[in-house]
Nucleic acid binder design. Structure first.
Length: 833
RNA sequence: GCGAGAGUGGCGGAAUUGGCAGACGCACUGGACUUAGGAUCCAGCGGUUUACGCCGUAGGGGUUCAAAUCCCCUCUCUCGCACCA
């Protein structure tokens, strides 16, 4: 008998798929499209198990949908700009471009060896000038529309990476990539005006039913929409101090004001007063601390009095103005009103500096058992209640009064309702080489001059030596930055920063729809055929980064007229990590499993099968070498099942339609039932991505077939066997495409299994003719019995009551009622004496 | 602290709607075949009990004829956010 040799058959079919161009797709108005996308990889050198898992899940869905009759777009490409290329260049003296394209070439062979069905004709690498050139084009359009601007601002800077980071790329005060502590630097940077879409990005998060709640919450959290009011507090010495608050219902309880150290009034108010010296030294100290350090001081709120007072516009009382490190300059107006009675932070500050506390909200009677009192309270009361000490609003429920208070403020011209966002604009300048050059020229006489469209692309030079220095390598390379001003022709200087690589990954999914298009970044007709992505699959780690940027960028492309849809990803699946020995697989932990080794030892089908079978896609996958063996064993079992009787099967005409006439005995009807049940289960599980249980049910079918072939079978039975085996091959094929293609051919089929339509199941056969009914007495299982399906209740009761075990449990007891769940369960409720 | 999710055999995990808890696989145990078994096949495999049975889905309470599933309380873990006024 021929042995299962994965290496041989996998190479064979991969070549056939490639030669026959089987996964190439075009737009076809006659078919329903399905765009399936997995997050593209960074070409780091080799793929890891996380990729294998991600792409295996995607490949199953793509193949399944294709067999279902969809026109499936399943592309692959490379997120090819980024720092590792530069670091490798410094370490090994290579060129980032060479390093990157070499890695791409190798990783592509790895993906091919896993048998993923991509349309390679659409492959792109973001470091291709054909790609980033169009990105520069979009940058210029955004510049024209005011969606890109340049400003001097304190930015997050990672010393180790020698570059600036966006807010989203700072985690716990550390660099998302290398973990180095992030410091604040003042630099002139380019920003994308993502905050212009803050509200839309927030609100549409409620219109994405196909996304995990968790991701949407993280995004909403990040955007941080809050409703409140801006209030102008007159300064005693003239002028106004504007603050933002979400709690106008506590305005009557304001006892002081606090400014961020960066607030322009901070030093101004103290100017020429006895407080000036102290304020100046405090502000200087605070400014020298970087943001993460200031945040670490949580709990220790420090501040100084400016010597100035503001007037509470509702009470006309004068309240002192402080400067403190706990107020953020970037949020709201950089100044706050402080209500120590009802805000814990203000309370702590008031206690530390001996400031008065005025209670304006009392807990409602019954809601809290104590009446709060300014003198004795030990923490702020942040809950709701009835307003007191609040002039015309006394006695009102605080939440209900808020809209009226806002109207009251607006009517008197002292405040205005306002929505505030936590989201900041996206800083995209990076002082690195291996990225897309920002298409801008600085001219001493003309200022900031965009590169004319006709001069695009601004090509990244490939022939420079990369040295680790604290500034962009390009700024050391005159051949790049020396340029003549496009406006006046005089000598000028190119921007030497490059774009954040998250810009490239924000629109690659659009470009897949029209690869190679050279008239514009995108070909709207084709983009509209394919967009939105029907199913996006990737890691949770991009919940706010890539996924938020892409939603923003797609909106920009929408406004530029390149795509109709506003939201790029209709459905999102976030797959879990691959864990081994209790930790994420990583080189430093020494717990990596090399995909090449797996393919070499067991074959791609086994590698895929294990990744899919070991746990449901959203959960973390616990790597288990023995589990891999189990999957290999299963495939050998399938192989033997077919190959051991391949000659017979080849000669037998399959019974594809299992009508009742061809079913001669109980074992046949049992097999027919198993087959239809399995098709149904796999179909439903594929639709909801429960791929592990889909595989489990296929295993059950295989077990049932083995049971069926234990004895010699007649012609009719063999015809059924062949039909069932063919169905088995078809439904296993999305998971393990090579072995199934081989077996499909071995049993005598001409075409490819991938071209075979997904089988339908017949509900009539999904149900068995005889069913096992659980029999309970007072809710406890006492026996089971096999009866005809849909047996009427009276007959069923009769059968059940005649069971010996049941009789025993009913002795001397009176039956109160009998509950019957058809074909499932009978529960006899009786006295319990 | 706030928000979200989870807790089921020795392990990974099943259980679309409240209806036989533990599918499928791993590990383990016994057996068959064998020169051999790390191959294959068969049987067993939540705990406890000689057995009938009793107990069992983090713990406690509740609703129900019936709860892993619904409700309340407690504990533990994971993730995200965290002076955002």
């Amino acid at each position: 008998m021929r042995l299962y040799d994965p290496k041989e058959i996998e190479e064979k079919w991969q070549k056939v798929w490639e030669d026959e161009n089987l996964f190439h797709v075009g737009e076809d108005a006659g078919k329903q499209k399905y765009y399936l996308l997995e997050m593209f990889p960074y070409p780091s050198g080799r793929i890891h198990m996380g990729h294998v898992r991600n792409y295996s899940i995607g490949d199953v869905i793509a193949r399944y949908k294709r067999m279902k009759g969809y026109n499936v777009l399943h592309p692959m490409g490379w997120d090819a700009f980024g720092m590792p290329a530069e670091n490798a260049a410094i370490q090994h003296g290579t060129q980032p471009a060479v390093w990157t394209y070499d890695n791409i070439a190798y990783m592509k062979t790895q993906l091919k060896r896993l048998g993923f069905g991509y349309d390679w004709a659409r492959e792109l690498a973001t470091c291709d000038v054909e790609y980033y050139g169009w990105e520069q084009w979009v940058f210029l359009k955004m510049y024209e529309k005011g969606l890109v601007y340049r400003k001097n601002a304190p930015v997050n800077y990672c010393k180790l990476c020698s570059t600036v980071l966006a807010n989203e790329q700072v985690e716990d005060g550390r660099c998302w990539r290398c973990g180095e502590e992030v410091v604040q630097n003042e630099l002139t940077q380019w920003f994308f005006a993502i905050t212009k879409y803050a509200d839309e990005l927030y609100e549409y998060a409620n219109k994405l039913p196909g996304w995990p709640e968790r991701v949407l919450n993280m995004q909403k959290n990040w955007i941080g929409k809050s409703h409140g009011v801006e209030v102008d507090f007159p300064l005693e010495r003239g002028g106004l101090l504007r603050i933002f608050t979400t709690r106008p219902d506590t305005l009557y309880g304001v006892t002081f004001m606090v400014l961020a150290p960066e607030h322009e009034l901070a030093t101004e108010l103290a100017h020429a007063t006895p407080y000036e010296k102290e304020v100046l030294s405090f502000v200087q100290k605070a400014r020298s601390q970087d943001r993460s350090f200031r945040l670490e001081l949580s709990g220790s709120k420090e501040g100084v009095f400016t010597g100035a007072y503001a007037i509470n516009p509702l009470t006309n009382q004068r309240v002192p103005i402080y400067v403190s490190n706990f107020v953020l300059a970037e949020y709201g107006t950089g100044a706050i009103m402080s209500v120590p009675a009802h805000d814990q932070r203000d309370f702590e500050f008031a206690k530390a500096y001996g400031l008065p506390i005025v209670v304006t909200i009392m807990p409602e009677v019954g809601a809290e058992d104590k009446v709060i009192d300014a003198a004795s309270m030990e923490a702020a009361y942040e809950g709701d209640g009835i307003m007191v000490n609040s002039g015309p609003f006394n006695g009102r429920q605080n939440r209900e009064a808020i809209p009226e208070i806002i109207a009251y403020l607006e009517g008197r011209g002292i405040g205005k309702g306002r929505v505030n966002y936590r989201l900041r604009d996206w800083g995209i300048s990076r002082q690195r080489y291996w990225g897309a050059p920002i298409p801008i020229i600085y001219c001493e006489s003309c200022g900031v001059v965009p590169v004319p469209y006709k001069d695009l692309p601004v090509k990244l030079p490939l022939d420079l030596q990369i040295k680790m220095v604290g500034k962009s390598p390009l700024s050391d390379y005159p051949a790049f930055y020396r340029v003549n001003c496009p406006t006046c022709g005089r000598e000028a200087r190119r921007e030497t920063d490059t774009m954040d690589t998250f810009v490239e990954s924000s629109w690659y999914f659009l470009r897949y729809a029209c690869p190679g298009y050279d008239q514009a970044p995108l070909d709207r007709k084709r983009v509209d055929y394919w967009m939105p992505v029907d199913q996006y699959i990737g890691g949770i780690e991009h919940a706010v980064l890539h996924l938020l940027y892409s939603r923003f960028f797609n909106r920009v492309m929408h406004e530029l007229g390149f795509v109709s849809v506003k939201e790029p990803f209709a459905n999102l699946l976030t797959q879990g990590m691959v864990i081994k020995d209790g930790a994420k697989m990583s080189k430093s932990k020494g717990n990596v499993v090399d995909p090449d080794y797996l393919i070499q030892r067991y074959g791609a089908d086994t590698a895929r099968l294990f990744c899919l079978f070991a746990s449901p896609p959203e959960k973390d996958l616990d790597w288990n070498d023995k589990g891999v063996e189990g999957c290999y064993r299963f495939l050998q079992r399938v192989w033997r099942l077919v190959i051991e009787r391949v000659d017979t099967l080849k000669e037998t005409l399959p019974t594809i339609e299992q009508d009742s006439a061809s079913v001669e005995n109980k074992e046949m009807s049992r097999l027919v039932h198993m087959m239809h049940k399995t098709i149904k289960k796999v179909t439903e599980d594929a639709e909801r991505f429960h791929l592990n249980t889909a595989i489990a049910s296929i295993m059950e079918l295989v077990n049932a077939i083995y049971k069926f072939v234990e004895v010699e079978r007649n012609d009719g039975e063999l015809r059924l066997l062949k039909g069932v085996i063919e169905h088995l091959i078809v439904i296993l094929s999305p998971f393990c495409p090579h072995i199934t293609e081989e077996l499909w051919q071995a049993v005598g089929n001409k075409g490819y299994v991938i071209d075979h339509p997904w089988p339908a199941y017949n509900e009539a056969y999904v149900q068995e003719e005889r069913v096992t009914v659980a029999v309970q007495v007072n809710g406890k299982l006492r026996d089971t019995c096999e009866v005809e399906r849909d047996l009427d209740e009276t007959a069923l009761k009769q059968v059940v009551l005649s069971l010996e075990k049941v009789k025993k449990h009913l002795e001397n007891r009176e039956i109160r009622k009998v509950i019957v769940i058809p074909n499932k369960l009978v529960n006899i409720v009786c006295d319990t004496n």
